[in-house]
């Protein structure tokens, strides 16, 4: 079955950069984009999404809020929060929501751990 990743970031450039990184690591994954939290919720309602990568600093609801909401709804979904705001508080909150923290700028190096972990988890037989 095809894997779908949703990239949530208000910056188009950031979405392109993250998209390229994902494409390099997992060429087969299908990529969807959303420009803010509400849009992301709408996309998820419309299509099945397996993996989510969320920017923290966005207009409207911030990325951690969204991550926490999604975690409530999808306990096993691989979620990452990507931000240059590397404050210990932010890292801790991401951890508390069981989301992976990726420092911006996002590079293959930085995203590899999360993406390959997600791929492994998705390939495992689902309950």
């Amino acid at each position: 079955m095809e894997t779908t990743v949703l990239i949530v970031d208000d910056s188009k450039l950031a979405r392109i950069v993250v998209g390229k990184v994902v494409a390099a690591l997992q060429p087969d994954w299908q990529r969807l984009e959303a420009g803010n939290a509400d849009e992301a919720v709408a996309v998820i309602a419309a299509k099945p999404v397996d993996v989510v990568i969320i920017d923290f600093n966005m207009p409207g609801r911030d990325g951690l809020d969204l991550a926490e909401e999604l975690r409530g709804r999808f306990p096993a979904m691989p979620i990452a929060v990507a931000t240059a705001n590397i404050q210990d508080e932010i890292v801790d909150r991401a951890r508390a929501a069981n989301a992976t923290f990726i420092a911006k700028p996002v590079t293959e190096e930085g995203a590899r751990g999360f993406i390959s972990g997600a791929a492994l988890r998705l390939r495992a037989p689902r309950p």
């Binding site: 910056s11 600093n57 931000t83 240059a84 705001n85 590397i86 404050q87 210990d88 911006k104 700028p105």
Partner: peptide, 13 residues
């Protein structure tokens, strides 16, 4: 965003 955030967040830490 990336440059200023890294700077400020590092200082906060």
């Amino acid at each position: 965003n990336v440059v200023l955030n890294s700077c400020l967040a590092t200082m906060a830490n």
